[in-house]
Design a protein around this nucleic acid. Sequence first.
RNA 1: CGGGGUAUAGCGUAGUCCGGUUAGCGCGCCUGCUUUGGGAGCAGGAGGUCGCAGGUUCAAAUCCUGCUACCCCGACCA
Length: 490
Amino acid sequence: MAKDFPKRKDNYSQWYNDLVIKADLAENSAVRGCMVIKPYGFAIWEKMQSVLDKMFKDTGHVNAYFPLFIPKSFFSREANHVEGFAKECAVVTHYRLKNNPSGEGIVVDDDAKLEEELIIRPTSETVIWDTYKNWIQSYRDLPLLINQWANVVRWEMRTRLFLRTAEFLWQEGHTAHATKDEAIDETMKILDIYADFAEKWMAMPVIKGVKSPNERFAGAVDTYCIEALMQDGKALQAGTSHFLGQNFAKAFEVKFLNKENKQDYVWASSWGVSTRLIGALIMAHSDDSGLVLPPKLAPIQVAVVPIYKKAEQLQTISDKINPVVKALQEKGISVKYDDRDTHKPGWKFSEYEFKGVPLRLAIGPRDLENNTIEVARRDTLEKEIVGIDGIVDHVIRLLDEIQNNLYSKSLSFRKENTFMVDNWEDFKAQIEKGGFILAHWDGTGETEQRIKEETKATIRTIPMDDDKAEGKCVFSGKPSERRVVFAKAY
RNA sequence: CGGGGUAUAGCGUAGUCCGGUUAGCGCGCCUGCUUUGGGAGCAGGAGGUCGCAGGUUCAAAUCCUGCUACCCCGACCA
Protein backbone atom coordinates (compact mmCIF):
# COMPACT_ATOMS: atom_id res chain seq x y z
CA MET A 1 0.00 0.00 0.00
CA ALA A 2 2.75 2.42 0.91
CA LYS A 3 4.78 1.06 -1.95
CA ASP A 4 5.18 3.68 -4.66
CA PHE A 5 3.67 6.26 -2.36
CA PRO A 6 4.94 9.73 -3.25
CA LYS A 7 7.11 11.68 -0.86
CA ARG A 8 6.00 15.11 0.32
CA LYS A 9 9.11 16.86 -0.85
CA ASP A 10 8.88 15.36 -4.34
CA ASN A 11 5.28 16.21 -5.09
CA TYR A 12 3.17 17.51 -2.28
CA SER A 13 -0.18 17.65 -4.05
CA GLN A 14 0.29 14.17 -5.51
CA TRP A 15 1.17 12.98 -2.02
CA TYR A 16 -2.06 14.47 -0.69
CA ASN A 17 -4.25 13.09 -3.47
CA ASP A 18 -2.79 9.60 -3.17
CA LEU A 19 -3.04 9.66 0.59
CA VAL A 20 -6.75 10.45 0.58
CA ILE A 21 -7.45 7.62 -1.84
CA LYS A 22 -5.10 5.01 -0.44
CA ALA A 23 -5.98 5.64 3.19
CA ASP A 24 -9.56 4.94 2.16
CA LEU A 25 -10.90 8.32 3.24
CA ALA A 26 -12.71 9.38 0.08
CA GLU A 27 -12.82 9.05 -3.67
CA ASN A 28 -14.10 10.96 -6.64
CA SER A 29 -17.65 10.20 -7.63
CA ALA A 30 -19.42 9.89 -10.94
CA VAL A 31 -20.49 13.51 -10.49
CA ARG A 32 -17.91 16.10 -11.38
CA GLY A 33 -16.39 17.80 -8.36
CA CYS A 34 -18.30 15.72 -5.85
CA MET A 35 -16.73 13.16 -3.58
CA VAL A 36 -17.76 9.95 -1.97
CA ILE A 37 -16.68 10.06 1.65
CA LYS A 38 -15.82 6.50 2.54
CA PRO A 39 -16.52 4.94 5.94
CA TYR A 40 -13.06 5.59 7.36
CA GLY A 41 -13.11 9.23 6.28
CA PHE A 42 -16.66 9.69 7.41
CA ALA A 43 -15.79 8.26 10.83
CA ILE A 44 -13.35 11.16 11.26
CA TRP A 45 -16.09 13.62 10.30
CA GLU A 46 -18.47 11.98 12.76
CA LYS A 47 -15.92 12.43 15.52
CA MET A 48 -15.46 16.07 14.58
CA GLN A 49 -19.20 16.54 14.49
CA SER A 50 -19.83 15.04 17.88
CA VAL A 51 -17.14 17.15 19.55
CA LEU A 52 -18.20 20.40 17.88
CA ASP A 53 -21.87 19.67 18.41
CA LYS A 54 -21.27 19.33 22.12
CA MET A 55 -19.25 22.54 22.19
CA PHE A 56 -22.09 24.39 20.48
CA LYS A 57 -24.72 22.94 22.78
CA ASP A 58 -22.64 23.66 25.86
CA THR A 59 -22.70 27.31 24.83
CA GLY A 60 -26.47 27.44 24.45
CA HIS A 61 -26.96 26.62 20.78
CA VAL A 62 -29.59 24.27 19.40
CA ASN A 63 -29.79 22.40 16.12
CA ALA A 64 -32.45 22.83 13.45
CA TYR A 65 -32.78 22.15 9.75
CA PHE A 66 -33.59 24.50 6.88
CA PRO A 67 -34.29 23.56 3.26
CA LEU A 68 -31.75 22.66 0.62
CA PHE A 69 -33.51 24.90 -1.92
CA ILE A 70 -33.59 28.65 -1.83
CA PRO A 71 -35.97 30.71 -4.01
CA LYS A 72 -33.93 32.77 -6.42
CA SER A 73 -35.55 36.02 -5.30
CA PHE A 74 -34.25 35.56 -1.74
CA PHE A 75 -30.75 35.75 -3.04
CA SER A 76 -31.01 39.18 -4.55
CA ARG A 77 -32.17 40.76 -1.30
CA GLU A 78 -28.68 41.30 0.06
CA ALA A 79 -26.57 42.90 -2.66
CA ASN A 80 -23.08 41.86 -1.52
CA HIS A 81 -24.26 38.38 -0.69
CA VAL A 82 -25.69 37.68 -4.13
CA GLU A 83 -22.66 39.16 -5.79
CA GLY A 84 -20.37 36.89 -3.83
CA PHE A 85 -22.19 33.67 -4.58
CA ALA A 86 -23.95 34.19 -7.91
CA LYS A 87 -21.10 32.78 -9.99
CA GLU A 88 -21.10 29.39 -8.30
CA CYS A 89 -24.73 28.45 -7.81
CA ALA A 90 -26.45 25.30 -9.00
CA VAL A 91 -30.00 26.10 -10.11
CA VAL A 92 -33.09 23.91 -10.26
CA THR A 93 -35.31 24.91 -13.16
CA HIS A 94 -37.65 21.94 -13.67
CA TYR A 95 -39.45 19.42 -11.53
CA ARG A 96 -40.18 16.55 -13.91
CA LEU A 97 -38.61 14.23 -16.46
CA LYS A 98 -40.24 12.32 -19.27
CA ASN A 99 -39.36 9.62 -21.77
CA ASN A 100 -37.52 11.01 -24.74
CA PRO A 101 -40.22 11.30 -27.45
CA SER A 102 -37.62 11.12 -30.23
CA GLY A 103 -35.53 8.22 -29.01
CA GLU A 104 -33.81 6.50 -26.14
CA GLY A 105 -33.55 7.66 -22.58
CA ILE A 106 -35.15 10.35 -20.55
CA VAL A 107 -35.30 14.12 -20.95
CA VAL A 108 -36.32 17.17 -18.97
CA ASP A 109 -40.01 17.87 -19.40
CA ASP A 110 -40.19 21.43 -20.69
CA ASP A 111 -43.78 21.67 -19.54
CA ALA A 112 -42.57 21.26 -15.98
CA LYS A 113 -40.65 24.51 -15.73
CA LEU A 114 -40.62 26.06 -12.28
CA GLU A 115 -42.34 29.40 -11.88
CA GLU A 116 -39.36 30.57 -9.87
CA GLU A 117 -36.01 28.82 -10.07
CA LEU A 118 -34.58 27.33 -6.92
CA ILE A 119 -30.96 27.78 -5.91
CA ILE A 120 -29.28 24.87 -4.20
CA ARG A 121 -27.93 26.51 -1.05
CA PRO A 122 -24.32 27.62 -1.18
CA THR A 123 -24.98 28.87 2.37
CA SER A 124 -28.27 29.43 4.17
CA GLU A 125 -28.35 33.02 5.40
CA THR A 126 -31.16 34.09 3.10
CA VAL A 127 -33.60 31.28 3.73
CA ILE A 128 -32.87 31.39 7.43
CA TRP A 129 -33.35 35.13 7.76
CA ASP A 130 -36.54 34.92 5.78
CA THR A 131 -37.68 32.44 8.43
CA TYR A 132 -36.33 34.37 11.42
CA LYS A 133 -38.52 37.26 10.34
CA ASN A 134 -41.50 35.23 11.53
CA TRP A 135 -39.87 34.10 14.74
CA ILE A 136 -38.69 37.40 16.11
CA GLN A 137 -40.96 40.18 17.33
CA SER A 138 -39.59 41.18 20.70
CA TYR A 139 -36.31 41.33 22.57
CA ARG A 140 -37.80 38.43 24.53
CA ASP A 141 -37.38 36.24 21.44
CA LEU A 142 -33.66 36.96 21.45
CA PRO A 143 -31.04 35.75 21.30
CA LEU A 144 -31.76 33.06 18.76
CA LEU A 145 -28.84 30.62 18.71
CA ILE A 146 -29.28 28.04 15.98
CA ASN A 147 -26.94 25.69 14.20
CA GLN A 148 -27.55 23.30 11.37
CA TRP A 149 -25.55 20.36 10.05
CA ALA A 150 -26.04 20.27 6.31
CA ASN A 151 -24.62 19.90 2.86
CA VAL A 152 -24.09 22.87 0.58
CA VAL A 153 -23.18 23.25 -3.07
CA ARG A 154 -20.75 25.69 -4.62
CA TRP A 155 -20.03 25.06 -8.26
CA GLU A 156 -16.25 25.20 -8.07
CA MET A 157 -14.08 25.34 -11.16
CA ARG A 158 -11.30 23.29 -9.71
CA THR A 159 -11.88 20.77 -6.98
CA ARG A 160 -9.79 18.64 -4.65
CA LEU A 161 -10.97 15.97 -2.26
CA PHE A 162 -11.94 17.53 1.07
CA LEU A 163 -10.17 20.83 0.37
CA ARG A 164 -12.61 22.08 -2.23
CA THR A 165 -15.50 20.05 -3.57
CA ALA A 166 -18.67 21.15 -5.34
CA GLU A 167 -20.77 19.66 -2.58
CA PHE A 168 -19.49 19.56 0.97
CA LEU A 169 -20.74 18.90 4.47
CA TRP A 170 -20.55 21.53 7.16
CA GLN A 171 -22.26 23.14 10.05
CA GLU A 172 -23.57 26.65 9.81
CA GLY A 173 -24.58 28.63 12.84
CA HIS A 174 -26.97 31.56 12.46
CA THR A 175 -27.63 33.71 15.47
CA ALA A 176 -29.80 36.78 16.11
CA HIS A 177 -29.19 39.27 18.89
CA ALA A 178 -30.69 42.40 20.37
CA THR A 179 -27.47 44.39 20.43
CA LYS A 180 -24.39 44.86 18.37
CA ASP A 181 -22.09 43.98 21.25
CA GLU A 182 -23.91 40.75 21.89
CA ALA A 183 -23.60 39.71 18.24
CA ILE A 184 -19.89 40.55 18.24
CA ASP A 185 -19.41 38.59 21.46
CA GLU A 186 -21.11 35.62 19.83
CA THR A 187 -18.86 35.90 16.77
CA MET A 188 -15.81 35.87 19.04
CA LYS A 189 -17.09 33.08 21.23
CA ILE A 190 -17.45 30.83 18.23
CA LEU A 191 -14.04 31.80 16.91
CA ASP A 192 -12.63 30.69 20.27
CA ILE A 193 -14.50 27.41 20.01
CA TYR A 194 -13.07 26.80 16.54
CA ALA A 195 -9.54 27.64 17.67
CA ASP A 196 -9.96 25.40 20.70
CA PHE A 197 -11.18 22.57 18.57
CA ALA A 198 -8.35 22.97 16.08
CA GLU A 199 -5.67 23.07 18.74
CA LYS A 200 -6.95 20.67 21.39
CA TRP A 201 -8.61 18.08 19.17
CA MET A 202 -6.98 18.36 15.79
CA ALA A 203 -3.60 19.18 17.39
CA MET A 204 -3.28 21.93 14.80
CA PRO A 205 -2.16 25.39 15.87
CA VAL A 206 -4.11 28.26 14.35
CA ILE A 207 -3.90 32.02 14.17
CA LYS A 208 -7.06 33.87 15.10
CA GLY A 209 -7.71 37.05 13.30
CA VAL A 210 -9.92 39.17 11.13
CA LYS A 211 -10.05 39.09 7.34
CA SER A 212 -9.14 42.05 5.19
CA PRO A 213 -12.08 43.59 3.31
CA ASN A 214 -11.08 41.74 0.13
CA GLU A 215 -11.38 38.37 1.84
CA ARG A 216 -14.52 39.12 3.79
CA PHE A 217 -17.63 36.91 3.54
CA ALA A 218 -20.20 38.28 1.10
CA GLY A 219 -22.70 40.13 3.26
CA ALA A 220 -20.63 40.36 6.45
CA VAL A 221 -19.45 43.44 8.30
CA ASP A 222 -16.42 41.53 9.56
CA THR A 223 -15.14 38.03 8.94
CA TYR A 224 -13.02 36.38 11.60
CA CYS A 225 -11.09 33.24 10.88
CA ILE A 226 -8.71 30.63 12.12
CA GLU A 227 -5.80 30.14 9.79
CA ALA A 228 -3.43 27.16 9.80
CA LEU A 229 -0.11 26.49 8.08
CA MET A 230 0.20 23.30 6.08
CA GLN A 231 3.41 21.31 5.66
CA ASP A 232 4.03 22.65 2.17
CA GLY A 233 4.07 26.20 3.48
CA LYS A 234 0.62 27.15 2.26
CA ALA A 235 -2.09 28.56 4.48
CA LEU A 236 -5.46 26.99 4.97
CA GLN A 237 -8.52 28.75 6.29
CA ALA A 238 -9.99 26.25 8.71
CA GLY A 239 -13.04 28.08 10.02
CA THR A 240 -14.85 31.38 9.77
CA SER A 241 -17.10 33.37 12.05
CA HIS A 242 -18.90 36.40 10.66
CA PHE A 243 -20.30 39.46 12.33
CA LEU A 244 -23.16 40.30 9.98
CA GLY A 245 -24.22 43.55 11.58
CA GLN A 246 -27.80 44.33 10.59
CA ASN A 247 -27.25 43.55 6.92
CA PHE A 248 -29.48 40.52 6.72
CA ALA A 249 -31.99 41.90 9.20
CA LYS A 250 -32.43 44.90 6.92
CA ALA A 251 -32.58 42.80 3.78
CA PHE A 252 -35.24 40.54 5.26
CA GLU A 253 -37.02 43.11 7.44
CA VAL A 254 -36.28 41.37 10.71
CA LYS A 255 -37.21 43.90 13.37
CA PHE A 256 -37.97 43.58 17.05
CA LEU A 257 -39.32 45.75 19.82
CA ASN A 258 -36.62 46.49 22.34
CA LYS A 259 -37.06 47.19 26.04
CA GLU A 260 -37.74 50.84 25.26
CA ASN A 261 -40.62 49.77 23.04
CA LYS A 262 -38.75 50.90 19.94
CA GLN A 263 -38.42 49.02 16.67
CA ASP A 264 -34.87 47.98 15.84
CA TYR A 265 -33.19 45.68 13.37
CA VAL A 266 -31.74 42.49 14.75
CA TRP A 267 -27.95 41.96 14.95
CA ALA A 268 -26.56 38.78 13.51
CA SER A 269 -23.68 36.35 13.29
CA SER A 270 -23.02 33.29 11.18
CA TRP A 271 -20.20 30.77 11.35
CA GLY A 272 -19.10 27.49 9.90
CA VAL A 273 -16.57 24.73 9.54
CA SER A 274 -16.69 22.06 6.87
CA THR A 275 -15.30 18.73 5.74
CA ARG A 276 -12.34 20.81 4.65
CA LEU A 277 -11.16 20.30 8.23
CA ILE A 278 -10.41 16.71 7.25
CA GLY A 279 -8.10 18.02 4.54
CA ALA A 280 -6.45 20.26 7.11
CA LEU A 281 -6.06 17.36 9.50
CA ILE A 282 -4.43 15.23 6.82
CA MET A 283 -1.98 17.92 5.77
CA ALA A 284 -1.13 19.02 9.28
CA HIS A 285 0.33 15.74 10.55
CA SER A 286 0.69 13.06 7.93
CA ASP A 287 4.07 11.89 6.65
CA ASP A 288 5.71 9.87 3.89
CA SER A 289 4.46 6.65 5.49
CA GLY A 290 0.85 7.75 5.19
CA LEU A 291 -1.84 9.24 7.35
CA VAL A 292 -1.13 10.38 10.91
CA LEU A 293 -4.18 11.03 13.06
CA PRO A 294 -4.31 12.69 16.46
CA PRO A 295 -5.67 10.19 19.01
CA LYS A 296 -8.61 12.39 19.91
CA LEU A 297 -10.05 12.22 16.38
CA ALA A 298 -8.81 8.81 15.25
CA PRO A 299 -11.68 6.39 14.48
CA ILE A 300 -9.42 3.58 15.73
CA GLN A 301 -7.07 4.67 18.49
CA VAL A 302 -5.44 1.33 19.15
CA ALA A 303 -5.09 -1.62 16.79
CA VAL A 304 -4.16 -4.96 18.29
CA VAL A 305 -2.51 -7.54 16.06
CA PRO A 306 -2.07 -11.12 17.21
CA ILE A 307 0.82 -13.11 15.80
CA TYR A 308 0.17 -16.81 15.63
CA LYS A 309 0.67 -19.95 13.61
CA LYS A 310 -2.16 -22.21 14.56
CA ALA A 311 -5.72 -21.77 15.68
CA GLU A 312 -5.05 -22.91 19.24
CA GLN A 313 -2.22 -20.39 19.45
CA LEU A 314 -4.62 -17.63 18.43
CA GLN A 315 -6.96 -18.84 21.12
CA THR A 316 -4.25 -18.55 23.76
CA ILE A 317 -3.38 -15.05 22.57
CA SER A 318 -7.03 -14.00 22.47
CA ASP A 319 -7.54 -15.27 26.00
CA LYS A 320 -4.60 -13.18 27.10
CA ILE A 321 -5.47 -10.01 25.20
CA ASN A 322 -9.26 -9.86 25.39
CA PRO A 323 -9.28 -8.61 28.99
CA VAL A 324 -6.85 -5.87 27.93
CA VAL A 325 -9.05 -4.89 24.99
CA LYS A 326 -12.05 -4.79 27.28
CA ALA A 327 -10.24 -2.74 29.91
CA LEU A 328 -9.17 -0.22 27.27
CA GLN A 329 -12.70 0.03 25.91
CA GLU A 330 -14.00 0.64 29.41
CA LYS A 331 -11.66 3.62 29.55
CA GLY A 332 -13.37 4.96 26.44
CA ILE A 333 -10.61 4.03 24.01
CA SER A 334 -11.60 2.69 20.62
CA VAL A 335 -9.71 -0.52 20.10
CA LYS A 336 -9.73 -2.84 17.14
CA TYR A 337 -8.60 -6.36 17.87
CA ASP A 338 -7.71 -7.57 14.40
CA ASP A 339 -7.77 -11.35 14.57
CA ARG A 340 -8.62 -11.81 10.89
CA ASP A 341 -6.83 -14.81 9.48
CA THR A 342 -7.19 -13.48 5.95
CA HIS A 343 -4.24 -11.12 6.32
CA LYS A 344 -0.79 -11.61 7.73
CA PRO A 345 0.64 -9.57 10.61
CA GLY A 346 3.06 -7.67 8.38
CA TRP A 347 0.23 -6.68 6.11
CA LYS A 348 -1.80 -5.44 9.05
CA PHE A 349 1.14 -3.43 10.38
CA SER A 350 1.42 -1.58 7.09
CA GLU A 351 -2.30 -1.11 6.86
CA TYR A 352 -2.67 0.54 10.27
CA GLU A 353 0.44 2.56 9.76
CA PHE A 354 -0.83 3.92 6.47
CA LYS A 355 -4.24 4.67 7.93
CA GLY A 356 -2.72 6.65 10.77
CA VAL A 357 -3.85 4.56 13.74
CA PRO A 358 -2.01 6.22 16.66
CA LEU A 359 -1.00 3.05 18.52
CA ARG A 360 -0.50 -0.53 17.51
CA LEU A 361 -0.11 -3.41 19.88
CA ALA A 362 1.31 -6.73 18.70
CA ILE A 363 1.30 -9.88 20.75
CA GLY A 364 2.79 -13.24 19.81
CA PRO A 365 4.23 -16.44 21.30
CA ARG A 366 7.36 -14.68 22.57
CA ASP A 367 5.23 -12.18 24.43
CA LEU A 368 3.14 -14.90 25.98
CA GLU A 369 6.34 -16.45 27.30
CA ASN A 370 7.68 -13.20 28.69
CA ASN A 371 4.35 -11.62 29.67
CA THR A 372 5.08 -8.68 27.35
CA ILE A 373 3.53 -6.85 24.41
CA GLU A 374 4.93 -4.78 21.55
CA VAL A 375 3.80 -1.17 21.35
CA ALA A 376 4.34 0.89 18.21
CA ARG A 377 3.42 4.56 17.98
CA ARG A 378 2.51 6.12 14.66
CA ASP A 379 3.78 9.63 15.26
CA THR A 380 7.41 8.65 15.87
CA LEU A 381 7.28 5.14 14.33
CA GLU A 382 9.02 3.92 17.50
CA LYS A 383 8.51 0.42 18.85
CA GLU A 384 9.03 -0.87 22.36
CA ILE A 385 8.40 -4.06 24.27
CA VAL A 386 6.64 -3.52 27.58
CA GLY A 387 5.18 -5.69 30.30
CA ILE A 388 1.57 -6.48 29.65
CA ASP A 389 0.43 -5.89 33.20
CA GLY A 390 0.54 -2.11 33.17
CA ILE A 391 -0.46 -1.83 29.52
CA VAL A 392 -3.79 -0.04 29.99
CA ASP A 393 -2.25 2.87 31.83
CA HIS A 394 0.68 2.88 29.45
CA VAL A 395 -1.64 3.15 26.44
CA ILE A 396 -3.63 5.97 28.00
CA ARG A 397 -0.41 7.82 28.75
CA LEU A 398 0.94 7.25 25.24
CA LEU A 399 -2.23 8.43 23.50
CA ASP A 400 -2.04 11.60 25.50
CA GLU A 401 1.63 11.99 24.68
CA ILE A 402 1.00 11.46 20.96
CA GLN A 403 -1.74 14.07 20.99
CA ASN A 404 0.61 16.57 22.64
CA ASN A 405 3.54 15.63 20.47
CA LEU A 406 1.58 16.21 17.27
CA TYR A 407 0.55 19.63 18.49
CA SER A 408 4.04 20.68 19.51
CA LYS A 409 5.51 19.35 16.27
CA SER A 410 3.00 21.41 14.30
CA LEU A 411 3.65 24.42 16.46
CA SER A 412 7.42 24.18 15.97
CA PHE A 413 6.89 23.77 12.27
CA ARG A 414 4.81 26.92 12.19
CA LYS A 415 7.38 28.85 14.23
CA GLU A 416 10.16 27.73 11.89
CA ASN A 417 8.09 28.81 8.94
CA THR A 418 6.88 32.17 10.13
CA PHE A 419 9.02 35.07 9.04
CA MET A 420 9.15 38.76 9.81
CA VAL A 421 9.80 40.53 6.55
CA ASP A 422 10.43 44.24 6.14
CA ASN A 423 11.39 44.83 2.55
CA TRP A 424 9.81 44.00 -0.75
CA GLU A 425 12.68 41.93 -2.19
CA ASP A 426 12.79 39.67 0.85
CA PHE A 427 9.02 39.40 0.72
CA LYS A 428 9.01 38.14 -2.85
CA ALA A 429 11.83 35.71 -2.14
CA GLN A 430 10.24 34.32 1.01
CA ILE A 431 6.78 33.92 -0.50
CA GLU A 432 8.31 31.62 -3.08
CA LYS A 433 9.67 29.41 -0.31
CA GLY A 434 6.36 29.35 1.55
CA GLY A 435 5.29 29.93 5.13
CA PHE A 436 3.56 32.68 7.03
CA ILE A 437 5.00 36.13 6.45
CA LEU A 438 4.45 38.81 9.05
CA ALA A 439 4.73 42.12 7.29
CA HIS A 440 3.41 45.62 7.50
CA TRP A 441 0.53 46.61 5.26
CA ASP A 442 -0.83 50.08 4.63
CA GLY A 443 -4.41 48.90 5.01
CA THR A 444 -5.55 49.57 1.46
CA GLY A 445 -7.25 47.15 -0.88
CA GLU A 446 -5.12 48.38 -3.78
CA THR A 447 -1.89 47.36 -2.09
CA GLU A 448 -3.34 43.99 -1.15
CA GLN A 449 -4.42 43.49 -4.75
CA ARG A 450 -1.04 44.50 -6.17
CA ILE A 451 0.76 42.13 -3.81
CA LYS A 452 -1.55 39.33 -4.85
CA GLU A 453 -0.93 40.01 -8.53
CA GLU A 454 2.83 40.06 -8.13
CA THR A 455 3.31 37.17 -5.70
CA LYS A 456 0.04 35.16 -5.52
CA ALA A 457 0.12 35.80 -1.78
CA THR A 458 -2.89 37.15 0.06
CA ILE A 459 -3.48 38.54 3.50
CA ARG A 460 -4.61 35.46 5.35
CA THR A 461 -5.56 37.29 8.47
CA ILE A 462 -4.98 40.34 10.60
CA PRO A 463 -4.02 38.68 13.87
CA MET A 464 -5.93 39.56 17.01
CA ASP A 465 -3.48 38.41 19.67
CA ASP A 466 -0.39 40.26 18.45
CA ASP A 467 0.90 43.38 20.01
CA LYS A 468 0.53 46.28 17.72
CA ALA A 469 3.78 47.72 16.45
CA GLU A 470 3.95 50.51 13.96
CA GLY A 471 6.00 50.29 10.81
CA LYS A 472 6.03 50.88 7.11
CA CYS A 473 4.09 48.91 4.51
CA VAL A 474 6.32 46.31 2.89
CA PHE A 475 4.95 47.21 -0.52
CA SER A 476 4.08 50.91 -0.52
CA GLY A 477 6.23 52.21 2.34
CA LYS A 478 3.23 54.02 3.76
CA PRO A 479 2.64 53.95 7.50
CA SER A 480 1.16 50.79 9.01
CA GLU A 481 -0.08 50.23 12.53
CA ARG A 482 0.50 46.50 12.67
CA ARG A 483 1.86 43.43 10.95
CA VAL A 484 -0.51 41.13 9.11
CA VAL A 485 -0.12 37.51 7.97
CA PHE A 486 0.65 36.95 4.30
CA ALA A 487 0.81 33.54 2.62
CA LYS A 488 -0.13 31.61 -0.43
CA ALA A 489 -3.36 29.86 0.37
CA TYR A 490 -5.46 26.81 -0.41
C1' C B 1 -14.03 28.81 -17.65
C1' G B 2 -8.99 29.24 -20.81
C1' G B 3 -4.12 26.38 -21.93
C1' G B 4 -1.69 21.49 -21.60
C1' G B 5 -1.91 16.21 -20.51
C1' U B 6 -4.28 11.50 -19.59
C1' A B 7 -8.27 7.53 -20.16
C1' U B 8 -6.52 -0.30 -22.02
C1' A B 9 -9.14 -6.17 -16.09
C1' G B 10 -10.11 -3.87 -9.14
C1' C B 11 -5.10 -0.91 -9.31
C1' G B 12 -0.58 0.31 -12.16
C1' U B 13 0.82 -0.10 -17.09
C1' A B 14 2.83 -2.11 -22.64
C1' G B 15 0.77 -1.76 -27.36
C1' U B 16 -1.51 3.81 -30.46
C1' C B 17 3.12 7.40 -34.20
C1' C B 18 3.08 3.34 -39.01
C1' G B 19 -4.78 -0.12 -38.64
C1' G B 20 -4.03 -6.72 -39.64
C1' U B 21 -3.22 -13.60 -35.27
C1' U B 22 -6.27 -15.11 -29.34
C1' A B 23 -4.62 -7.13 -26.50
C1' G B 24 0.73 -8.48 -23.18
C1' C B 25 2.93 -7.69 -18.21
C1' G B 26 3.12 -6.55 -12.68
C1' C B 27 0.13 -6.06 -8.27
C1' G B 28 -4.43 -7.57 -6.45
C1' C B 29 -8.37 -11.59 -6.73
C1' C B 30 -9.83 -17.30 -6.57
C1' U B 31 -8.11 -22.72 -5.42
C1' G B 32 -4.43 -25.97 -3.13
C1' C B 33 -0.03 -26.85 -0.26
C1' U B 34 3.83 -24.64 2.62
C1' U B 35 4.01 -20.06 5.60
C1' U B 36 2.71 -16.12 9.69
C1' G B 37 7.37 -10.98 15.00
C1' G B 38 7.16 -5.46 8.83
C1' G B 39 3.21 -5.85 2.91
C1' A B 40 5.07 -14.50 2.14
C1' G B 41 6.58 -18.73 -1.55
C1' C B 42 5.31 -22.31 -5.23
C1' A B 43 1.65 -24.41 -8.57
C1' G B 44 -2.87 -23.83 -11.01
C1' G B 45 -7.05 -20.47 -12.32
C1' A B 46 -10.71 -16.47 -13.18
C1' G B 47 -11.15 -11.61 -14.86
C1' G B 48 -11.24 -6.88 -20.90
C1' U B 49 -18.07 -3.26 -24.39
C1' C B 50 -9.47 -0.88 -24.93
C1' G B 51 -13.69 6.19 -21.17
C1' C B 52 -18.62 7.14 -24.08
C1' A B 53 -21.12 8.09 -28.95
C1' G B 54 -20.67 8.46 -34.01
C1' G B 55 -17.64 8.02 -38.55
C1' U B 56 -13.66 6.09 -42.18
C1' U B 57 -12.17 0.94 -43.61
C1' C B 58 -12.46 -5.74 -45.98
C1' A B 59 -10.49 -4.86 -40.93
C1' A B 60 -10.08 0.12 -35.45
C1' A B 61 -7.26 0.03 -28.70
C1' U B 62 -4.64 2.18 -33.09
C1' C B 63 -7.15 7.00 -38.00
C1' C B 64 -11.23 11.20 -37.89
C1' U B 65 -15.32 14.05 -35.25
C1' G B 66 -18.07 15.06 -30.92
C1' C B 67 -18.76 14.24 -25.72
C1' U B 68 -17.43 12.90 -20.59
C1' A B 69 -14.17 12.28 -16.49
C1' C B 70 -9.55 12.92 -14.03
C1' C B 71 -4.52 15.35 -13.43
C1' C B 72 -1.25 19.84 -13.98
C1' C B 73 -1.01 25.33 -14.88
C1' G B 74 -4.02 29.97 -14.76
C1' A B 75 -8.63 33.01 -13.33
C1' C B 76 -12.56 32.07 -9.07
C1' C B 77 -13.38 30.25 -4.17
C1' A B 78 -14.32 27.58 2.46
